[in-house]
Structure formats: C-alpha cells, structure tokens
C-alpha cells in the first residue's frame, strides 16, 4: 500500500514521530528509534554544560541521513522566549522546522493559546516551518492554520500523562476543519491510544514518554510502530457502522431443519 505522510514538502513512510528525551541511555534511545520506524525525531535546545564536556552529544548518536530533526521550544512560557529558542534551534540544527511549544502552566503543561498564536505568527513571518503543539480546540487549530502553520498538533492529553485520547470528538472536528496535517501530540500511553488516534483519521502521532518511560522501551517502540500502521489501515479501510443489535455473520439460508 502506497500511503505516504506529507509534511512541509517532504514525504515520509512512517506516521510516527518520536521524542529523544528520557531514555535510560543513549544506546537505548538509538535502539528504540530504530524499532519505532520513525523518520522524524524531536529534540530540545539547551545550554551547553560547560562544567561537564566529557559526555558525547546527541548528534553523535543520531543518524541524520535517516532522521529529520524537529527541534522544540519546550520549557518556554512566553512567545518571546519561544521565538528566541526557535532561532537558536534553526542555527543549531540547520533546519527551519520547529515544534512550537508555549506552555501556560507548570502542572498541566497545557499550552498558552494566546502566546502560541503570537509566536506562530512571528515565526511564520521569519520563514520557519511551524508545527504548533496546541490544545484540542478546533478554533485555535483553525487560527494556527490561518497564520500559516504547516500542521496543527493538538494534544491527546497532558504531556507525559499517558491518559490517551481524552476528547476524540474534538479531534474529529479539528480533522473536518483542517487542510494541513493534523498530528496528535502528547498524552499517548499505550499502543491502542496511538491506533485509536490514527483510526480517527489524524495524519501522524508524536510521542516520547509512552516509549521512553515504558518498562521495555524498545518493545514499546515496536508496538507503537505496529499500532500506528494498524490504525492507519483501519482508518483507510473504513469501519462498519455501529449498530445496537446483532447481525449474524453466518447466513440463515441452508440451515438444517
């Protein structure tokens, strides 16, 4: 089946975007990314630790011929901070892709809609390809699309919560509105959550903790790969309508009497 995921002018075979944080070791991360089949990985931008220069950098472990880097603005609470980090990210990675994240609250890590819109407008003007993490609100998603974002990335549930798709109906409305790819970002806890997201018709799923925080991250990465593929196929195949009563699978005709 030839079904590629088109994002910002490039085609990908995988519809699973994976984060590079929280793994026990870099080797485990490399193995998990490989098992997930992902072609796009998120990274964060932080100060170089000047006291400890002994450790190898993330770049030593990521095969850039294989993965597209998607730097994030995680940890930013204002549009100004996010724009600043995005500019640094572009210089550090050489890529104009940015996962825009402007957080509104430490406990929920819910996005600040107003600041996200301000930052998105500025970054689009500066030529960035903006992929905003946002609330599962169709109106915010529509505004982000109108600004010129290359995709919208509504959360399934709070970052790292593993609660799964909390509002499938909103995701469906977002999908009806959107002309850009819709990527479910954050909140996936298990493979069925990823499959469910794909069955709703989203273009891709982004996750980090669900894989990195699992007891066996590499095995979970495999499970997520299979789930995203299965969910996508299930969506394309078209499910049967829900009915209240049974409908026999075996014909009545030809029954013995």
């Amino acid at each position: 089946m030839n079904d590629t995921f088109r994002l910002a002018g490039r085609e990908y075979r995988s519809r699973l975007i994976v984060g590079t944080g929280k793994y026990a070791t870099m080797e485990q991360m490399v193995e998990a990314l490989d098992a997930s089949g992902t072609e796009i990985v998120t990274v964060a931008i932080r100060r170089v630790n000047l006291a400890d220069r002994s450790r190898k950098s993330l770049l030593d472990y990521l095969d850039l011929s294989r993965y597209t880097l998607l730097p994030n603005t995680a940890g930013c609470y204002t549009a100004e901070e996010a724009v600043r980090v995005a500019r640094l990210a572009r210089e550090a990675t050489g890529s104009s892709l940015v996962k825009l994240e402007v957080i509104g609250d430490q406990r929920t890590l819910f996005p600040d809609n107003e600041q996200t819109l301000v930052a998105a407008r500025q970054l689009v003007q500066e030529g960035f390809t903006v992929l905003p993490y946002c609330i599962d609100d169709p109106i915010v998603c529509r505004k982000l699309e109108e600004i010129g974002c290359a995709a919208v990335m509504p959360l399934a549930a709070p970052i790292g919560s593993g609660l799964g798709i909390r509002n499938p109906h909103n995701i469906r409305i977002i999908l009806e509105f959107a002309k850009v790819p819709v990527i479910v970002d954050a909140g996936v806890g298990q493979a069925s959550d990823a499959a469910y997201a794909m069955e709703l018709g989203v273009d891709a799923v982004l996750m980090n903790t669900a894989i990195a925080g699992a007891k066996e991250p590499v095995l979970m990465a495999e499970a997520m790969k299979a789930a995203v593929e299965a969910g996508r196929k299930s969506f394309l195949a078209g499910r049967i309508p829900r009915k209240l009563y049974a409908q026999a699978s075996s014909p009545i005709e030809g029954m013995i009497e």
Partner: peptide, 29 residues
C-alpha cells in the same frame, strides 16, 4: 540575545559585560 551566525563568529568581537549563550541539541519531546 541576538543570534550570531556560524560564519560570523570569527569576526564578532566580545566586549566587557556581553551576555553570551551557547546552546546545543539534547534529548527532548
């Protein structure tokens, strides 16, 4: 607070009190 492009590093002098940030990629979601 202004980015200095890689190809401009050699020609950008430092002055007393300058604030310099050096960042890199690390693991993140």
């Amino acid at each position: 607070q202004d980015i200095v492009r890689r190809d401009r590093l050699a020609e950008t002098p430092l002055a007393e009190g300058d604030r310099v940030e050096v960042v890199r990629m690390i693991g993140g979601g």
